[in-house]
Design a protein around this nucleic acid. Structure first.
Lengths: 338, 338
DNA sequence: TTGTAAGCGTTATCAA
DNA sequence: TTGATAACGCTTACAA
């Protein structure tokens, strides 16, 4: 009951107040003054709830990510926020740690008008039984995938990412150039398409160089420091331990470095380590971590823009946007020991 | 136009459908079946926009924090989310980096019904001119302060935090016990009450031990790794450099460690370093970082609970809740060099 | 340039 | 246990 009060006080109709608020140029200058005066007097603030309801728009975007507090995602979020602010959206964050991994849980947010679109920065399992059984008639909600590769079922949605396979192959090549032949790989979680792709790239480069990939060389690091430490230990305990380790991301590389040093080994003299993402801690690691950088903020920005397009239907094509990666050589990699 | 369709299809009134959705026990079993069947048939999902509008509730909470991607805040957020999920709230995140620091910008979110309450995990400047001039008649919105100490103007709001002054004094005492007399302090941003309190604690402990605090020993680290590196360099360049450095948080301590090692100094042989927060990188720092831990998740949980109370008016007292801190001694601190 | 009034989808009040 | 109906605060034809 508020635009009414303003109208009454200003001696105009509610329509005029609404117009003043939304397209002031349609209101005569003199009237504008009266309305503004009334607004100031009663301290009126438009009720966003009513406005959104009326417009059928939440102005909310859900960003789904594996874990907040990820230093890499921080950069992506910065890009997302920039565009969101510019376009008048607020960001709702859901992490897959405390929430379910089901596709439906997120798309339902759109169907029930809790959000206008979804930005997926995490792997989730689309189309589980629950989903399949449901009325699949529903139109696809506005949804964009950032970072991740895309399972076949999701390939209809736009995505923005680096070419993880090629990037990981490049990193592996770099190690091979340094003379490494026994190269281990610390993978992420089983269900992460993204780290799966990086593993593919690693295998591809090894194959191309005609280097074997022993089964024990590929271990799961669970996407965490501790997981990576355990994985590294297993690698170090091998009869013939690798002379280099490719970690599917920097977080795990940090864990690997710690574990290697704890074992009394020197990096890169005894073992080289390479990561992925170039988080801010990579540079101050000891030794500074060689890694593959992604244009995180750009990924955030571009995927948010795609999402805005998807929401207002101006979605041109849905070919994945591939952004460039960049190998950053620091001190954690060196020539293979002889 | 949807609950209507369901009603029509089920052959009941919209009121009954609504009741079925919100308090099924009030609906006869047989009717329930009909309604559910209709819902399934047309794939109905309640429109949250309309519901929120009608109820006058957004079911949204704004969490204001300095920067997402802060590994310490991640833990706090986990606690917040747990309670939010339980209470049916979604979390809107605003960081003070990309947004303004003004109190009003956030409280307006409540007045304009964009959110039901505010959880402040960052320092902002309350009651700037803009705020003071405005109709201060407005009731205070539901707002809780987490982590931070509270400026006088905000002291009316509940808060949940550790006793930063005592905690920092404890850390400083620990260094003094180790024989350190020249102890430097790397502070956060100027406007951060939280790091200001930690500085106070440091000064208090020094005073109590009758140790001088030379002006040059207290430098600003800007709450970032790079800022801390610059600050550390200044400390190292001093005629008489400190034998220990207290960093107002772990992020800066990580930067300090890196800079000290880059200068060819050994930790803790030449210099001891202590941090604050116990982020996950503290343990794998080289050397592992001595620090003061806060029960982050608990802080998140408790402050969110206070906020829920504030929202539904069951707010008992507003005395700050102080949670315990805990000194974690690792390898970055040692006896003062002789 | 302004006013009138319908309607967005729900919930809640009141009667039946 | 159910139904009819009046709000909630705003936007937007349409008319004036």
């Amino acid at each position: 009951m508020s635009i009414k009060q303003v109208a009454k006080l200003a001696g105009v109709s509610t329509a005029t107040v609404s117009r003043y608020l939304n397209s002031p140029e349609q209101v005569k200058e003199k009237t504008r003054g009266k309305v503004q005066a009334a607004i100031d007097e009663i301290g009126y603030a438009p009720n966003a709830l009513a406005r959104n309801f009326r417009r059928g728009k939440t102005s909310l975007i859900v960003v789904v990510l594996p874990a907040i507090g990820d230093p890499f995602l921080e950069k992506v979020m910065r890009g997302i926020w920039r565009v969101a602010d510019e376009q008048g959206y607020s960001i709702l964050i859901r992490d897959t740690q405390s929430n379910s991994h089901e596709f439906d849980e997120y798309t339902d947010l759109v169907f029930s008008k809790q959000a206008d679109g979804i930005l997926l920065l995490a792997s989730i399992s689309p189309f589980e039984e629950a989903s399949a059984s449901r009325g699949s008639e529903r139109a696809h909600p506005p949804l964009v995938l950032g970072l991740e590769s895309v399972s076949a079922e999701l390939s209809q949605f736009p995505s923005v990412r680096v070419d993880n396979i090629t990037a990981a192959a490049d990193g592996t090549d770099f190690l091979i150039q340094l003379g490494h032949q026994r190269i281990g790989f610390i993978a992420g979680k089983r269900d992460s398409l993204l780290t799966k792709d990086r593993e593919k790239g690693y295998r591809k480069a090894m194959r191309k160089a005609k280097l074997p990939v022993v089964g024990e060389w590929v271990v799961e690091g669970e996407q965490t420091i501790d997981g990576a430490r355990r994985a590294t230990r297993r690698l170090l305990d091998l009869e013939q331990r690798p002379s280099a380790i490719f970690c599917a991301n920097d977080e795990m590389a940090l864990g690997a470095i710690h574990e290697i040093k704890s074992a009394g080994l020197k990096i890169p003299r005894d073992i080289s380590v390479i990561g992925f993402d170039d988080i801010r801690y990579a540079e101050i690691a000891d030794p500074p971590l060689t890694t593959i950088a992604q244009p995180a903020e750009e990924i955030g920005e571009r995927s948010m823009r795609r999402l805005c397009q998807a929401i207002d239907g101006s979605d041109a094509d849905s070919a994945p946007e591939i952004v460039p990666h960049n190998l950053i050589v620091r001190k954690s990699t060196g020539r293979a020991p002889t």
